[in-house]
Design a protein around this nucleic acid. Structure first.
Lengths: 342, 342
DNA sequence: TTGTAGGCGTTATCAG
DNA sequence: CTGATAACGCCTACAA
């Protein structure tokens, strides 16, 4: 039974060496003979010695903790990225501190501050939203390395797909199938979140249409937040409108979760997917394969791993390519060639 | 512009008081005249002083950090609970440290240890799995207060629904609709996770049937992990079997996500829900309303809030009722009365 | 109400 | 390779 209060001194005493030697030995620093190191390790384990984190932090200035600022943990993309981050961090002996903005978009600045105050982090990963000027400034003089995920930030190491190109991929798929009347469910109705990603996807979509000599008819367009619920509501509105206007043969949603909502609304209105209408999304959500949703996949867990590695290593950050991470089309059952119009 | 290196001494000097007074004033401790406090606060703000977390921890022994041990953040229940925890914690000025077991069930003991080592936590919230004996012991001599969520733990403050009673509610709903051939998709095929919750739900289901003089036919029963994917696969197997055996008129899944998987499989096989088969789940996942899934709801975010409050306050823990948190039936479109058999 | 001074438990900088 | 000995920056009895 290890006693309750073993400090580095007890270990040192037991090993007949100085505390500094124990410290070095236990952290695999050079300058300790292998024999001594072994002996100290054994003793430390036996006594159940564990360095007090606060003391180590104070003395070394390093916290072995990385913070993550996230809009919400309730969305596939964010929780997946978090998993990836966690995986790498823990493997490296680091801890993960999470700061979620959920329901407090207005307090964003304050939360941002909380994360940086008191030097409690060795690095910060910002998920899903761009930084404001004051925030960037705040970071600089906090001297905390930052990595952005889910959107690119000029001047900051970032990991993300190319949102325009994603839409090119999506539209290309539908166009090849023969679709010409393609609708779009845009994102960006959130309160808290960035408008950058939805806007870029929207622009990308329009450009992809334009390239092909197509245009987005107003009645083919909806807008919703990045949630099933919101997309479902938008879908119902669209369906109502289509009672008196033509409807598209395919819809692209800004995310898979939005596509789920659309499909639910369409099905409820008696529209069959893909027979009456093709639907596709972006993400490759965990549910998408079972649901048979065609989508443009991004590797969220991989994003997280990459971000964590970048957060941990200054060299990697320096060498980091600013190219976007690749995405990939996954064709499934929710898209098909349009039926001949009567 | 606050200088880069303001310590408590600078503030004390500027205010013409001792560091101890600054410390007291800033933490709203009693024993400081209001005038002095105001002056110090102003000065501190002006100088941009923020106590160094490590030093405060070392001196006070408190970390203002609560840890959460979670099987994975990728599931509705867990991420929702996390949101609730985060909300309360940040409001109280505490930080949230997350330890996720994803993909390292075998390392569970080690992760568990990591969370407790080095006195870096003021409390620990364990989500979704019961503790082993050694783990409990570990907790005791770490002296860290623990709160369990998602399953009850004798001797540990815990927040959870009554999993047996949940099934009673589910079966009751179907029984009242007229169902007698009720099937069950059991949980518990995970590697990492506890078998406690799925087992209790299974027992609860059986008991609810028994009470009504019913029995679960073997061909009405499936088993899967708590994921859409796994439930989808199980659903496909069931459908195949039903080609040569009778099929139930209703299925209860162990969770909403599992119900989603089932429904996807049934639909793909041409079975209509609820016309051919009613399906219900447990949770009230964010998607369930839009999907029209009947379910037994549990307030995951609320669980999280409650757990965080318990983790923060010894008194609350002492007073904490050991009664389960209530659940609630939500009837939607996925269940209906069975059609007359031919 | 306020000031003084001794920790808190490591790490890091020097000598030896 | 190893050992003293300052920091590290704040908190908290205790004294005034």
């Amino acid at each position: 039974m290890p006693s309750i209060d073993v400090g580095i001194e007890e270990v040192a005493a037991a090993a007949g060496v100085a505390t500094s030697t124990v410290s070095r030995a236990l952290r695999n620093q050079q300058g300790v003979s292998e024999a001594t190191r072994q002996r100290i390790r054994a003793l430390a384990a036996e006594l159940g010695y564990v360095p007090t984190s606060a003391a180590a932090r104070l003395a070394s200035g390093r916290t072995h903790t990385i913070g993550v600022l996230v809009p919400t943990m309730n969305r596939w993309f964010f929780s997946s990225v978090l998993e990836g981050i966690d995986e790498v961090l823990h493997a490296a002996g680091y801890d993960l501190m999470v700061f979620s903005l959920t329901g407090r978009g207005s307090e964003r600045q304050r939360l941002f501050d909380r994360a940086l105050r008191g030097r409690k982090l060795d690095g910060l990963i910002v998920l899903g939203f761009p930084l404001s000027r004051p925030e960037e400034a705040r970071l600089r003089d906090a001297g905390v390395p930052v990595v952005a995920v889910g959107h690119s930030v000029p001047g900051v190491t970032s990991v993300s797909i190319d949102d325009r190109s994603v839409m090119e991929t999506a539209v290309d798929h539908l166009h090849r199938l023969g679709h010409r009347d393609i609708g779009f469910l845009a994102g960006g109705m959130e309160f808290d979140l960035s408008f950058a990603v939805p806007r870029m996807r929207e622009e990308g979509f329009h450009e992809a249409l334009r390239t092909r000599g197509l245009m987005l008819r107003p009645e083919f367009r909806g807008r919703a937040a990045f949630t099933v619920e919101s997309a479902y509501a938008a879908g119902r509105h669209l369906v109502e409108r289509w009672a008196i206007t033509p409807r598209p043969t395919a819809m692209v949603a800004c995310s898979d979760e939005m596509a789920f909502g659309l499909i639910a609304a369409f099905r409820e209105a008696g529209l069959r997917v893909p027979e009456d209408l093709s639907v596709m999304g972006v993400d490759d959500h965990d549910f998408s394969e079972s649901f048979g949703l065609t989508t443009v996949a991004q590797d969220a867990v991989g994003h997280g791993r990459m971000a964590a590695r970048l957060a941990l290593s200054p060299e990697r950050r320096r060498l980091a390519p600013s190219e976007p991470v690749p995405h990939e089309l996954r064709v499934r059952r929710s898209t098909a060639a349009p039926r001949q119009r009567a």
